[in-house]
Amino acid sequence: MAAEAWVTLATNDSYAVGALVLAHSLKSVNSTRPLVVMITDQVSSAMRNRLGEISCRVQEVNVMDSKDSAHLALLARPELGITFTKLHCWTLTDFSKCVFLDADTLVIQNCDELFDREEFSAAADAGWPDCFNSGVFVFRPSMETYGKLVEFAVAEGSFDGGDQGLLNSYFADWATKDISRRLPFIYNMTASASYSYRPAYKQFGKNVRIVHFIGSPKPWQASEASAFQNPVPGDHIAHWWRIFICNVLPRLSSDMTGVAAQFSQLAVKEVPEPITDNQDEKPLFSSPPEVTVEATASVDSGPSSREAWEQGFIDYTGKDSFDNIMQKIKKTLESNKKP
């Protein structure tokens, strides 16, 4: 067993789709460390088998729910309660050091140097930089630490109801104790940063190692096949979908659940060149060939029109065309007229 490992968590088959893409992204950048996938009992047998093919271990863990409805209500994200399950990563004591990656992250350049960091290393959260984002962090598995974290969770809870609030409270000196524990943003860049602060992305984007698809929608929650047709260079969503189409989609089956089962019914007419373990000759953000997809099943949980616009997904020739926008404006103005 390797002394060090990447670790991720999949609480259901839908998030397992993200874990599969993450696993292949690690292989595509030639990482020398294996991947451990923690799962819950909500992951189907078919998906467990698939995860086992691309990881060194599939470890089932119990769901730990914070049951902190008051705090979770502040975020309008009640599903975050089960992220307390992430604490089980400290029980992986077969490894001396690990790097945790959320299932909605994507590794786009080799970053094995993260294993040179010490517990607890993480990058600042874009929403509140004095806190770290818990989607990527370096830690040392320890049953003693695990026990203390669980005790702390029971006694103190979490200020946001999820693992990030808990871990920030437990590792409260992260921002001040040791600057070496503060990972650069390139190791946990929010996907939206490529357009929300475009000048900085233009300057530093070439150095980005890990992209994090924070919030909703996730890449696997595209509402229609057009979400991944004709991507442009530098599009992280397109990069995710290219790996998905080449390496993950062909191995999904109807025996799985959630979006994994729905995706298994997608018929891809033209498949781009597969992602391999050797990407030395390929540019980091190369635009994949046009992919024509025949959708034989709908995929739910897609973004609303407002969310799509905010994240740069605009259907200029369809529902977001000029004529349709003008009709919407006209309809809104007429509905607001006083009787």
Rank of each mutant, 00 (worst) to 15 (best):
V17F: 09
V17M: 07
G18N: 05
L22T: 07
A23G: 00
H24L: 05
H24A: 03
S25Y: 04
L26N: 02
N30F: 03
S31F: 04
R33Y: 06
L35H: 03
V37A: 14
T40H: 06
V43C: 07
S44I: 03
A46S: 13
R48H: 10
N49F: 10
C56G: 10
Q59W: 11
V63S: 03
M64R: 10
L72G: 12
A73C: 04
A76R: 14
E79T: 12
L87A: 11
H88L: 06
D94S: 15
C98T: 07
L101F: 05
L106G: 03
L106T: 03
Q109M: 09
D112W: 02
D112H: 03
E113L: 09
R117L: 04
R117W: 03
E118N: 15
S121G: 12
A123D: 01
G127A: 10
W128V: 08
D130K: 11
F139S: 02
F139A: 05
F139K: 05
R140V: 08
E144L: 10
T145V: 12
A153T: 00
G157F: 02
G157H: 00
F159K: 11
S169D: 08
F171R: 07
W174E: 03
A175M: 10
T176K: 12
S180H: 07
R181W: 10
R181V: 06
R182L: 05
P184H: 07
P184D: 12
F185R: 14
I186E: 15
N188G: 07
S192W: 06
S192N: 11
R198M: 11
I214V: 06
G215Q: 02
P217M: 04
K218W: 01
W220R: 07
A222I: 04
E224K: 13
Q229L: 04
N230A: 08
N230L: 08
D235Q: 09
H236A: 08
A238D: 09
W241D: 03
L249S: 14
R251E: 10
R251H: 15
S254M: 08
S254Y: 11
G258H: 05
V259F: 09
A261L: 03
Q262C: 10
F263W: 04
F263T: 12
S264D: 07
Q265I: 01
L266H: 13
L266P: 00
K269F: 06
V271P: 00
T276R: 14
D277S: 15
D277H: 12
Q279R: 15
E281L: 13
K282T: 14
L284F: 06
S287Q: 13
S287A: 15
E290C: 09
E294P: 00
T296Q: 15
E310T: 09
G312L: 01
G312Y: 02
F313G: 02
F313W: 13
T317N: 14
S321P: 01
F322S: 08
I325T: 15
K330M: 10
K330N: 13
E334C: 14
N336R: 15
N336M: 14
N336I: 04
K337I: 08
P339V: 03
P339E: 04
